[in-house]
Design a protein around this nucleic acid. Structure first.
Length: 349
DNA sequence: AACACGGGGTT
DNA sequence: AACCCAGTGTT
């Protein structure tokens, strides 16, 4: 017996039209009220897209609101210092995003007219294929399809794509042309957001809500009750590392470290040091484990033991590049990684 | 193509 | 414990 719904075929122009109108009207009715959707602007779109990379909406919301208060437009952001900008990003992670956004603001605010082409945007720091398509479609109505993790999920389910992708990034690249073939020519920005919104609030990775899906008629795996089987991605294995951190106090405060080089991880962001200044190496006496914590960075699970060093010869210590002492007051002003701020607070309390 | 880059929510 | 989130840049 033939399923009535399977008569829809996105290769037929009239069904493509229905698909677009279905998902667009669903989006206009069901979209979440998010701060960057309230009174949208190019600037807000750019800031939100930078923050939303690999980062959940609920995490971004308070950062976004604070950011817009501190830096309401490109010019105010361009004028801010890097330290200030990093401090506003503290805890959000992927700090190169903040530096790239800051540099982007300096470039854009120096221009008489902001470009509206995909190519021009891709040339800006921190802007890749996703952000270029998102910004130009949402802010300039360019017909450029986004293909992020949400869209991959929606597309592989609609078409029951059985190809096994190496990883999410590979799937995004390969399915971009498919996304481009579906995009609504008249409402590209809303269409892009609709596809992502569908992935975010309906087409969940696990337990998708297919029964009320606006495009179930077009979704082959949804109709088969098999949506959860897609996308097919290869598993990646995690590494484990165990490291130690030093807790060293003097009358000048707590010893912190940040990578001085602008390219390296967490440069400008302080953490407890992984190694002690070499001048201290021979002079330490007592060690004590204060705290043991776990955290994940990329695909590495870290086990960090915080070791207290005491009874060292304080006067003979010379700090190498990257190290500094910080009083409690100074700690609050510096930018620390999110976990280290919490752990330090926990030890101090 | 593979890896580094943060942090956290969900299952 | 595994997965992955409105990805990008480097090697």
């Amino acid at each position: 017996m033939k399923n009535h719904r399977s008569e829809y075929n996105l290769k037929k122009p009239e069904d493509l039209y229905k698909f677009r109108s279905s998902i667009l009207s669903w989006y206009r009715f069901h979209k979440r009220e998010l701060p960057w959707r309230k009174s949208p602007s190019l600037y807000k779109t750019v800031v939100s897209e930078f923050m939303l990379q690999q980062t959940r909406v609920v995490t971004v919301i308070p950062y976004f609101e604070n950011w817009i208060r501190n830096y309401p437009d490109f010019l105010s952001l361009a004028k801010a210092s890097e330290d200030e900008v990093l401090k506003s990003w503290e805890g959000l992670g992927y700090y190169s995003r903040a530096r790239n956004l800051h540099n982007l603001a300096k470039i854009v605010s120096s221009w008489k007219k902001v470009p509206d082409s995909m190519e021009a945007w891709k040339a800006l720091p921190g802007v890749g294929p996703y952000i270029a398509a998102a910004v130009t479609s949402i802010a300039f109505q360019k017909v450029e399809a986004v293909c992020d993790g949400n869209v991959v999920r929606v597309l592989t389910r609609i078409f029951s794509i059985t190809e096994k992708f190496k990883d999410g990034a590979t799937a995004q690249k390969k399915l971009q042309t498919t996304a481009q073939s579906l995009i609504d020519q008249d409402h590209p920005g809303d269409f892009n957001q609709a596809m992502m919104e569908l992935g975010a609030i309906q087409c969940f990775r696990q337990s998708p809500i297919c029964l009320t899906c606006p495009v179930l008629n077009f979704c082959t795996s949804g109709q088969a009750g098999a949506a959860e089987q897609f996308p097919k991605l290869e598993k990646k294995k995690k590494k484990k590392k165990s490291i130690h951190r030093y807790w060293i106090e003097s009358d000048k405060g707590l010893l912190l470290f940040s990578n001085p080089r602008s390219k390296k991880r967490l440069s400008g962001i302080y953490e407890l040091p992984e190694s002690m200044p070499s001048s201290m190496e021979s002079k330490k006496e007592a060690e004590k484990i204060l705290l043991t914590k776990k955290r994940t960075i990329g695909n590495v699970d870290y086990l960090e033991k915080i070791i207290e060093i005491s009874n060292y010869a304080e006067n003979e210590i010379e700090l190498e590049c990257g190290y500094r002492w910080a009083s409690r007051k100074e700690i609050n002003k510096l930018t620390l990684s999110g976990p280290h701020r919490k752990w330090i607070q926990e030890i101090l309390d």
